[in-house]
Nucleic acid binder design. Structure first.
Length: 237
DNA sequence: GACCAGGCACATC
DNA sequence: GATGTGCATGGT
């Protein structure tokens, strides 16, 4: 038995959900495109955009690079922020073309630190998107911090509200002795937990982490509304 | 009709 | 450095 809650959460989540087989996507390029399209967006909307790209046979670096910005934006419209995201995809492809002749294999072969810095230098790719690409598209060992991970750590009192991305990332890494597969699975399990229990759900009292997922930030454990006055309970319970 | 979803860049103070 | 804002669709 390990007393570190970060290790314990993993054990509980894996036992509860089992392997998640992440990232959803058949190729490294599909994973990269998905990572950009899912920025602040529900995954079901991303799936619609990916399907459009597949149907039009634009889901390879070469074919997408030939696509006009207008056509690309139209294809990814269901994922929201389509004008912004079309430019971000184009920015990535321009970088890939100029530096690696559109070869993802050449890009993936760079050392992790260098590759991360290069991805972050591309306008539209921030820490979470870069780390998702590193881990899930290229198999580099980095831990992805997303909104669910922030909530998990915060609500369990493991970080304070001011903690930034890299502090949380270091916290996860230092607690975990493991390989790329562990990092892959853990982040996927956190997202699964978040999707199941972060939003209003009348039957949310079966959270595998024993409802303590909700305990720190004064949100109602049943309806998820924030109770502004903490001396008064939410009206739904 | 309001709120939310697997961010990020940029402006402003 | 911290905070606010624009970007936009589709599900609940």
């Amino acid at each position: 038995m390990n007393n570190n809650p970060i290790v314990e959460f993993y054990r509980i989540l894996f036992e509860f959900y089992g392997p998640q087989d992440w990232w959803p996507g058949d190729t490294a390029f599909e994973i990269i495109v998905g990572a950009i399209l899912t920025q602040n967006t529900n995954w079901t909307n991303v799936e619609k955009a990916l399907e459009n790209l597949k149907v039009q046979r634009r889901l390879t670096p070469e074919r997408m690079f030939q696509c006009s910005l207008e056509e690309l934006a139209e294809l990814i419209r269901p994922s929201g922020y389509f004008n912004v995201k079309a430019k971000r995809l184009r920015n990535f492809l321009t970088y890939l073309n100029q530096n690696y002749q559109l070869s993802l294999e050449k890009l993936a072969a760079q050392p992790t630190k260098k590759l991360r810095e290069e991805l972050l230098s591309i306008n539209g790719i921030g820490p979470e998107t870069a780390d998702s690409i590193l881990l899930y598209a290229f198999g580099h060992q980095v831990f992805v911090i997303d909104a669910y991970t922030k909530r998990l750590l915060y609500r369990h009192g493991l970080v304070d509200a001011s903690a930034d991305y890299h502090r949380m990332q270091n916290q996860m890494i230092s607690a975990l002795v493991g390989d790329t597969q562990l990092y892959n699975e853990y982040h996927a399990l956190i997202v699964r937990l978040g999707k199941d229990y972060c939003r209003p759900k009348p039957d949310c009292d079966e959270c595998p982490l024993n409802r303590c997922y909700y305990s720190v930030d004064q949100r109602c454990p049943r309806c998820y509304r924030q109770t502004v006055d903490t001396s008064v309970s939410c009206s739904c319970v």
